[in-house]
Design a binder for these strands. Structure first.
Length: 590
RNA sequence: CGGGGAGUGGCGCAGCUUGGUAGCGCGCCUGCUUUGGGAGCAGGAGGCCGGGGGUUCAAGUCCCCCCUCCCCGACCA
């Protein structure tokens, strides 16, 4: 296969496109791999599509290797299955909906759990049919509030989604591990550095769940990683491992006047000025205070109730993290009107002692594990301008539940080994999780087991964002001057540049060289454009990012061809008679 | 959905404050020259100035409404 640039449908841009910010977006547009066609929708041009297909093929090969079978659903789906699982409403505005000429509802599939479940239900009914894993590579649609960063977050994108169907948890475990293993092979082959982190199954209603993240500054996911052991988790899924403190000999709790101290900062100032005698060693700090944040929780039945979250005063509450743990409850802001309805909650002075389902207020109270049993706190007195000191967890108040609620910080202890955690950002490129029986139950997917009894099938769900992976690889591998594709997914193996003009000896030698490379099984880009200056050809070759650039130019007179490795910049001057073998051996991995 | 920025030939931008009938660079076309790091000269083509309404003798420029894009936040496998 040879691309002759004189006729390839390609136009590179000298300037960065104004609407692109992140490197992958900027370079993929500038190098002529993609064009924006719609908000959050991109056209793949020939070279871009070549990359896309190579990624797809690697995914396909590894899925087939674990025995998964490829199918293909429509992108436009009926409403009913999504009604049955409640996702027609749960998905909310993120679902693209449309009606046919008779006014019947359809949707553009954001993901296909329902359809796969129904397909298996349609054809299988015995335990003997299981296990089975099916997958597709499909265009998915999500009406993202804010598409951004080119291919990284579009409203139309390509995803490989697979689903495993097993009779029991043991089977699911095996299917899950098979997919996990396949994903490791896929991302290894793609040449993409990645981290596997534990994640919350959250809204999808499963249990074990892990994400594959490509480490990347512009990534949208934040994850922690231990500096010592190999613990890694999405920030939402980090578990604290705080040990309870032995109950100390704290004096009885007492009320103090704290005028004008509705905020933690003001309170700490006031304590240091007026209650220095009672201060712990080193004086009062925010870490000695217990901050109580009120939110509303929305229950699946549509009702709302207040919830108070208690965290140390020097920490912020991470609502996403709380929400993930309380799922399917959703967190909403607590408004002025809500305060009016709950007069026991005194804004700025909410105290722990009246909180908890079994306490005076009856309001549900969850605590971050940092507020451990036996620790002593300064907290609100539930009265304007007053606080309570020496309020001891477990003695003076009891939470309904411990929930990891604080924003995770770099330097927090690792739950596995206690060493410092680091925080980094990544792009979610793959996700494996054990769905369990949620969809099978909702859609009544059952088989008969060995004893002739019906069993609900248990499922796993596994996704790879194929189009996103292309961008993630561009992010991970580019440099200042352009793209820099790993050998396995580059649209061509070698980019042949000549400074010769159409028809002259140099040009003919270059053409012969390119043709020979092609006949040796390489995919070749041959810059045969006429009247384009060498400078432009070199810049374009670097921008396009093939792993090897071969130059037939001034060194040709002395019998040499220049062979450059794009990534390392290493340049070899190779005698003409050896050049083909040199390029082939570099392209095949030395 | 909230905050900020921006929409002007294919691309990147100026013009808007102070209204007077659209300009620069790149790219594109023709010719000549040039050919190892985004060439030179000459001559061209190409624009309902995001859309709609208004003010005015006159609107890219002023006013109102809408749409779109980018960034931050919210949301989101």
């Amino acid at each position: 296969m040879m691309y002759r640039l004189s006729t390839t449908f390609l136009r590179t841009l000298r300037d960065d496109p104004a609407d692109a910010e992140v490197p992958s977006h900027r370079l993929l547009v500038r190098a002529g791999y993609i064009r924006r066609a719609a908000p959050g929708g991109y056209t793949w041009l020939p070279l871009g599509w070549a990359v896309y297909r190579r990624v797809e093929e690697i995914v396909r090969e590894e899925m087939n290797a674990i025995g998964a079978q490829e199918v293909h659903f429509p992108a436009m789906l009926p409403r009913e299955p999504y009604e049955a699982t409640n996702r027609w409403t749960e998905y909310g505005d993120n679902l693209f909906r449309l009606k046919d000429r008779r006014g019947v509802d359809y949707l553009l599939g954001p993901t296909h759990e329902e359809m796969f479940t129904l397909l298996v239900k349609d054809l299988y009914s015995s335990y003997k049919d299981l296990p089975v894993s099916l997958y597709q590579i499909q265009t998915k649609y999500r009406d993202e509030a804010r598409p951004r960063a080119g291919l990284l977050r579009g409203r139309e994108f390509s995803m490989k989604d697979s689903y495993s169907f097993d009779l029991d948890q043991d089977g699911l475990e095996k299917s899950y591990q098979a997919h996990r293993g396949a994903y490791i092979k896929i991302f290894d082959r793609l040449g993409l550095p990645y981290v596997i982190v534990s994640a919350m199954a959250g809204a999808m209603g499963g249990s074990l769940s892990e994400e594959f993240l490509a480490e990347c500054e512009v990534g949208e996911d934040t994850f922690v990683r231990c500096s010592k052991c190999d613990y890694a988790a999405n920030t939402e899924a980090v578990k604290s491992n705080i040990n309870a403190v032995d109950t100390g000999q704290y004096p009885a709790a007492a009320t103090i006047d704290t005028p004008d101290s509705p905020t933690i900062d003001a309170l700490v100032d006031f304590l240091n000025k007026h209650h220095n005698d009672k201060a712990p060693k080193g004086g009062w700090t925010a870490a000695h205070t217990l901050k109580n944040v009120v939110v509303n929780v929305a229950h699946p039945d549509g009702t709302k109730s207040p919830l108070v979250i208690g965290v140390p005063g020097d920490r912020e509450v991470d609502l996403k993290r709380v929400e993930a743990q309380l799922s399917p409850l959703e967190i909403e802001p607590f408004t002025e009107e809500d305060f009016a309805k709950h007069p026991k909650l005194v804004r700025g002075y909410i105290g722990a002692e009246i909180l908890g389902t079994d306490s005076e207020s009856g309001i549900r109270y969850v605590l971050d594990p940092r507020v451990a049993n036996g620790t002593s706190w300064v907290t609100g007195a539930n009265e304007f301008g007053k606080h309570r000191i020496n309020v001891v967890a477990g003695r003076d108040f009891t939470p309904d539940q411990l929930v990891d609620a604080v924003e995770v910080h770099a330097g927090d202890p690792c739950p596995e080994c206690g060493k410092d955690l680091r925080i980094d950002r990544g792009i979610e490129i793959g996700h494996v999780f054990q769905l369990g029986k949620k969809y099978a139950e909702a859609l009544d997917l059952k088989v008969l087991d060995q004893n002739g009894k019906t069993q609900v099938v248990t499922m796993g769900s596994y996704g790879i964002g194929v189009s996103r992976v292309v961008a993630a690889i561009a992010e991970a591998t580019h440099d200042e001057i352009g793209l820099c594709w790993p050998r396995n997914i580059a649209p061509a193996d070698v980019h042949v540049v000549t400074t010769g003009k159409n028809g002259d000896d140099l040009f003919l030698a270059a053409e012969k060289f390119a043709t020979e490379l092609e006949s040796r099984g390489l995919t070749v880009i041959f810059d045969d454009r006429n009247g384009v200056s060498p400078g432009v050809k070199f810049k374009d070759a670097e921008l396009l990012g093939m792993p090897v650039i071969a130059v037939i130019g001034k060194k040709f007179d002395s019998g040499h061809i220049e062979v450059r490795e794009r990534k390392s910049g290493i340049q070899h001057e190779v005698p003409i008679e050896d050049a083909i073998n040199t390029v082939v051996s570099i392209s095949k991995g030395h």
